[in-house]
Design a binder for these strands. Structure first.
Lengths: 229, 229
DNA sequence: GATTTCGAACATATCATACATGTTGCTAAA
DNA sequence: TTTAGCAACATGTATGATATGTTCGAAATC
């Protein structure tokens, strides 16, 4: 069964059977592939389930036009290339700056508490020497939630898993150095203070500084890795 | 066949049959639903094709664990509801403000020319009394391209088709009024001037003003429609 | 008593045939 | 020229038979 459905699938996707055309009848296919009608029918049932063909009783099985190339944005990224990460960081900067500004205006007490909680979680991770990527992402999500617009979390969830690159890069030279820790904590603190104070422009500015810093760190890695080639 | 496969699909997705469990045998299913083995087998062939179950000869048909909830971001929008449009506009604001800032820093002469061209296209549409949505979107895409980061165009293309709501709303009371035309043109002009001058902050500010204006217009429509209920 | 072997029961995979029902196109009647 | 009807063909479903693989418990063996 798998063999027949595979062949038919390829024939359709390669354009051998074009949209609107009729497939050979079950009888023809049984002869063509030397199998029983059962096998042919199950193969066609699989294609139907995938929306590739449509069976009309009495008339035949017809190829449907490809529903669309399955738009999956941001799936063409090469996370191995640091430039891809930087591209996403720039996009993310725009979204998160806006989220911070809106969060400053709209956050509820509970959301503020959640943000502060995440901030302390990061500190705890740093002190224990554990990676902070998960906690860091949680903080950014908490801020996005405080904007009270579900699309911001949706956006971050979508590209978020890709924005965290190889853990190896995170634990490069500057990670876990005292300077890095202090800087990160200070940047986060500035964002949170501005949001708590309802300072829209300040929150934007602080978030922009923070993400610019991230971009700068990746660019530095990019430069180093290019020198090493 | 459709009936049986539909029932089985729901039973699996609702958790009635959990991953790893065995489905009832073909014989049981034929009795249960009062159909022939042919129908049962075709229904199972459909489920197999969808990767929901796996059949092991002699052992039975087993439920596979769901590969993932198939993240299709921004597909759960209800474009009929204006609040959905406003949510997207806020997200878009973040991205486009960033794009305008980067465009001010990075645009090539060709990209600048393209932007100015789009601007004049909009004016031409307005004068001819034609809808400006397509030309408007083209301008925003041109600005995103001038940021020289392909992710910005990707983002706009993704949500863009959804951001243009019902044309009916566009042609509401304020559209085609002299005030509206002049304001739109002035807002666009400010963005373009700042980009041309390489004024990063000015470009951001101008883009933010422009999109805030759009948001305000939609919020006004939202208020009106709620009053009319 | 523990381990291995064997077989019955059962499961899916495939084949073959029959009948039901819907579609299409040609032919002959109006 | 139009229409009614019919034959050929298509898919949909039912049924029974055979092939092949799995499972598990009982019996044989050590």
């Amino acid at each position: 069964m798998l063999r027949v459905s595979k062949i038919l699938r390829q024939s359709i996707q390669s354009g051998e059977f074009k949209p609107g055309e009729r497939l050979p009848s079950e009888a023809k296919l049984t002869q063509e592939y030397g199998v029983s009608r059962t096998v042919v029918r199950e193969a066609i049932a699989a294609l139907r389930s995938d929306g590739l063909v449509e069976a009309r009783q009495g008339a035949g099985v017809f190829v449907l036009d490809a529903p669309q190339p399955e738009i999956m944005p941001f799936q063409n990224l090469n996370y191995e290339r640091i430039s891809s990460v930087i591209e996403l960081l720039e996009l993310r900067t725009g979204v998160e700056v806006e989220a911070a500004g809106l969060a400053a205006l709209r956050h509820s007490p509970q959301q503020e508490e959640k943000i502060i909680d995440c901030h302390q979680q990061i500190l705890a991770c740093l002190e224990r020497g554990e990676p902070t990527t998960a906690a860091d992402f949680a903080l950014h999500l908490a801020i996005a939630d405080a904007a009270n617009n579900p699309r911001f979390r949706e956006f971050l969830s979508m590209i978020g898993s890709g924005v965290i690159p190889r853990a190896a890069l995170q634990t490069g030279q500057d990670a876990s150095s005292g300077d890095y820790i202090a800087k990160l904590h200070e940047e986060h603190g500035a964002i949170i203070d501005a949001i708590s104070n309802g300072d829209e422009d300040g929150a934007r500015e602080a978030m922009r500084r923070h993400l610019k810093g991230s971009q700068a760190r990746y660019r530095a890695i990019l430069r180093r890795s290019q020198q090493n080639i």
